[in-house]
Nucleic acid binder design. Structure first.
Lengths: 334, 334
DNA sequence: TTGAAAGCGGTACCAT
DNA sequence: ATGGTACCGCTTTCAA
């Protein structure tokens, strides 16, 4: 920056101001810009952050980037935060709370302006870390009973119950559930819980649950899960799957066996992934606006940042909960 | 850090050393660690980077994080780089070279140790920026004629040609191609080029190309593309699609119309996505090790970093090209 | 093994 | 509108 300053015949401060787009006469600005271009100068973000005490990072943690759900959410966050000059520091927790903790600790070293997490489950250490950091936090994809700070999501339990009611409304009584076997996918577990609760509430008899494969289960687990379900409960009339991906796999298995969907058995998914709308038959599902969750979370963070600016320097925990709407989308499969 | 130091009764330097895991007596180390825990101290990465002149960032640019292709590649990079204490700064170019340039410029501000880009196409400004930065660069998913530095990928042209040969080997002659309409997906364009070249080379008559939808096209574009193809060239015997996603959409459309795949028309994809193995019929495709591309790219970067350490401080461009293997996977659809 | 001082490259603050 | 100076929090370097 000194080089640029001397080449332009001004002080470092002026260069800094031009870069920040603050007060500067046109001629000065032009000269500085010319010097910058000539030298190929790129300002050092670390120095800036250190000096000003504020970085331009937003830490974002999702369980998996390969799930379209979460990559859509990240897109939403990007759409809102990037225009504000913020940069996303994206981490993939791989559905592990320990890994989440490790990543939070690491990202905190970069003094992020705010943090977006997925889910309501975190280790005690993570909570402590976050509390001490004092930055705005938003938890996405769930409705925590006791949010760390803000939340943007919906109740996976309620959404699953709604799907059971939908299937029951179609006249089905012997309804099964297909989900993953691990205990790490909290949203999947909530959907299972919702299924069980509503089955009981409606008096639909014993739950028929097949849990198979590491969560989150994906397309390839749908087929064996459907196979198992049909073996254990051959008279099953409908199945709800923890996600559209497993529903798709289940439906493909039915096609292979010549079992008509929904004629012989109805299959429903969850999430309204792209595949649900364009496979054959199309999949009845619960639509969730994953991109919208990202946008809303971004908005919430920006709002927190804004009134942090206004009031004291420290953010006061506010417990703002944003509820995301969802709904059953009726298609061909159920 | 001063607080930690005084609480532990040592100097800042000792704290710094303990954090870096360097020489320190056991008792000192323990005391410092206790102080750190007590205060919930988290070292400031920006200050460290500024002072040491080296960050722990690796800049990674992919066209889209929602494509499983690229998210797998990012996973591969993570697997290799994270254990080395490096952190990925992930950017999504959205298939735009201008956006890539903007992101490169922004990421360069963080003084990344090295950079992974996707593809061989970049703006002139991006190349200049990269050259001036002097950090190791790896281009992924392609085999650039003139790599910026290193490359890890394969020829999409050759891979597409191989698929045409495979289809021709199955006795098909009237072979069509389904791809995206935009000019931004270079890998998709290369596959189209390969298709055209091999059709000509084998004397299979005029190419039958349907280009539809913003690249990269996805499942939902497969159906209308197949519809158009069948309208324009009803006697088509086989179709190769730019990716498994569009192949899937095309196959679903056939099912809807009662057209047997591969009986009446053979459909091949590209990429060996998960869906290709578990839909019905399963999709014949070209398998590419997306995760492996990430790992290899990570290895290449680490190697460059290592001998940068050894020799002079500046990295000498080396033009190391790593070729990734691919191959036709025969399944049911073609 | 440990400590003191300098300085990394910017920005805040105050003065001009 | 512009410049001077201190300082952000850490690591490097050198000395003890």
């Amino acid at each position: 920056m000194s080089d640029v300053a001397s080449l332009a015949g001004v002080s470092k401060m002026t260069v800094s101001r031009v870069l920040a787009g603050r007060s500067a006469s046109e001629s000065t600005r032009a000269r500085v810009q010319r010097a910058i271009d000539e030298l190929g100068y790129v300002a050092d973000a670390a120095a800036g952050a250190l000096s000003s005490g504020r970085s331009s990072f937003v830490a974002v943690l999702v369980p998996s980037m390969s799930s379209s759900n979460f990559s859509d959410t990240v897109s939403g966050l990007t759409a809102v935060l990037e225009p504000q000059g913020l940069e996303l520091l994206i981490g993939d927790t791989d559905y592990s709370l320990e890994r989440e903790e490790r990543l939070v600790r690491q990202m905190l070293r970069h003094q992020p302006r705010c943090i977006a997490l997925t889910g309501a489950q975190h280790t005690e250490a993570t909570r402590t870390l976050l509390a001490r950091s004092g930055v705005p936090v938003v938890e996405m994809w769930d409705q925590p009973a006791h949010p760390i700070d803000m939340s943007v999501g919906f109740s996976n339990v309620s959404a699953a119950r709604e799907m059971v009611r939908y299937l029951a409304g179609k006249g089905h009584r012997r309804i099964g559930f297909i989900g993953g076997a691990s205990e790490l996918d909290w949203r999947g577990l909530d959907r299972l819980k919702g299924y069980q609760m509503e089955m009981k509430a409606l008096g639909l008899g014993e739950p028929r649950v097949v849990r198979l494969g590491d969560s989150p289960i994906t397309m390839s687990h749908g087929a064996p899960a459907m196979t198992e379900l049909l073996e254990r409960w051959p008279d099953t009339e409908a199945v709800m799957c923890v996600s559209d991906l497993s529903a798709f796999g289940a439906i493909m298995e039915c096609q292979r066996r010549g079992i008509a969907v929904p004629g012989k058995i109805a299959v429903a998914g969850f999430g309204n992934f792209e595949i649900a709308a364009c496979c054959h038959p199309t999949i009845t599902t619960v639509s969730v606006d994953a991109y919208g969750i990202g946008r809303r979370a971004g908005d919430a963070l920006l709002a927190a940042l804004a009134d942090e600016e206004g009031e004291s320097a420290t953010h006061t925990r506010r417990t703002v909960k944003t509820r995301i709407h969802y709904g059953v989308v009726e298609r061909e499969s159920a």
